[in-house]
Simulated scan of single mutants.
Amino acid sequence: MKPTLLILAAGMASRYGSMKQIDGFGPNGETIIDYSIHDAIKAGFGKISFIIREEFLDSFKGIFEPKLKGRVETDYVFQSYDLKPFGIDKVIERSKPWGTAHAVLAARNQVHEPFCVINADDYYGYDAFEKMVQFLTTEASDSQYSLVGYQIDKTLSDYGSVSRGVCEVDDKGNMTEVNERTEVYFKEDGSVAYKDATGEHPLPNDKRVSMNFWGFTPAVFKQSEEMFKRFVEANEGNPKAEFFIPLVADELIKSGTAAFKVIPTASKWFGVTYKEDKPIVQESISALVANGTYPANLWG
């Protein structure tokens, strides 16, 4: 059974100021998601599942169905505010849904095979998809998951500091913890550092970070559902609290339930955090078209 690609596309982009998931970056208006899907199909994924808000269904179908028909199976998962499906009999007012791990849980009745989770607005590179398919088809088990680890210096923006999940990895190549560093940046000499309440700290340029590229089996749905209930219970008064995938990973690792293999990639990641990043992404994609990585008309 071929693995499924689950694309997190339910969040509207507050810092970016528009629905960047469907913004055009390629020579023919291709979105960043188009390149991810192209790489995923080539690597051997059998189905593309978009996690979206239900009100975006028609826009997403209008954009992606004509391109993908006959190439790969598609499916749509809705992330909503309704907690009843999780056995939580409460209505909690929020301005945005409950975060990335909640989005993954929304797919629990639709995904029945090993799967990979990615962000809609990030460019990951073919190498990551190829390595993840290899992992999901030969190594994944209900106690062995994975994430693709990017070199930190291949993930930063020239326009400001960014948040990165910095991975600590043991000698078996498994993640021991992921630390969210909220202010990571290039220094003038090209080295990498982060700031926290205690000051500035250096990071090795080849330190591995999580860019939200995870590999799971469907067992993770059961494993994280109870965690989600506890999270809602603890955070019902905090409208900004989000149930993130790294929180789930951390608990699974600490409880000994599952290990997470860190799959290294040398690919350059790029994404759109700031408006100023858009021309950079367009240039990066133009360069990939020019060097033959992608055809000029992706779906032509």
Rank of each mutant, 00 (worst) to 15 (best):
F64R: 10
K96S: 14
K84R: 15
F60A: 11
P97K: 11
Q110P: 00
H102C: 11
D82Q: 09
A101Q: 08
P114C: 12
E113M: 07
E113V: 09
K96H: 13
R108H: 08
R94T: 04
V77P: 02
V91T: 12
R71K: 15
L105P: 02
V72C: 11
E113L: 05
T100C: 10
K69Q: 14
V72Y: 07
Q110W: 00
W98R: 06
I88G: 02
K90E: 10
Y81T: 05
F64V: 04
A103H: 03
N109Q: 14
G70M: 09
I88A: 02
I88L: 05
K90S: 06
R71W: 01
I88E: 03
R71I: 02
H112A: 12
F60V: 06
I63E: 15
Y81V: 00
S80Y: 04
Y81D: 13
K96Q: 13
Y76W: 03
N109T: 13
R94I: 03
Y76N: 10
F78Y: 15
T74C: 12
L68A: 12
I92P: 01
L68H: 07
W98P: 01
D89C: 02
A101L: 10
H112Y: 00
D75Q: 14
A107M: 10
P114G: 08
G87C: 06
W98T: 01
E65M: 09
K90Q: 14
R94F: 03
K90T: 02
R108F: 05
P114W: 07
K69E: 14
S80H: 08
E93H: 09
I63M: 13
N109F: 00
V91C: 03
P85Q: 12
Q79I: 05
N109W: 00
V111D: 01
H102A: 15
Q79W: 01
G62V: 03
I92S: 02
P97S: 15
V111R: 01
Q110T: 10
K84N: 08
Y81S: 12
F86V: 02
V104T: 11
E73C: 03
I88K: 02
A106C: 11
K61N: 05
E65I: 07
P114K: 12
G87L: 06
K90A: 06
R108Y: 06
W98S: 04
K96T: 12
P85A: 13
V91H: 06
I88W: 01
A106Y: 00
Q79V: 07
V91M: 07
G87Y: 02
H112M: 06
V91N: 08
F64Y: 15
P97Y: 05
F78P: 00
D89F: 04
I63L: 15
G99A: 12
E65L: 13
Q79R: 05
K61I: 08
E113P: 00
A107F: 01
K69A: 15
E65F: 00
T100K: 14
K61M: 13
P114D: 12
V91A: 10
S80T: 15
R71L: 14
F86Q: 06
S95V: 08
L105Q: 06
V104Q: 04
E113S: 11
F78C: 07
D82T: 05
F86G: 03
Y81R: 09
K96R: 14
R94K: 10
D89S: 08
S80I: 03
P66M: 12
P97W: 00
I88M: 03
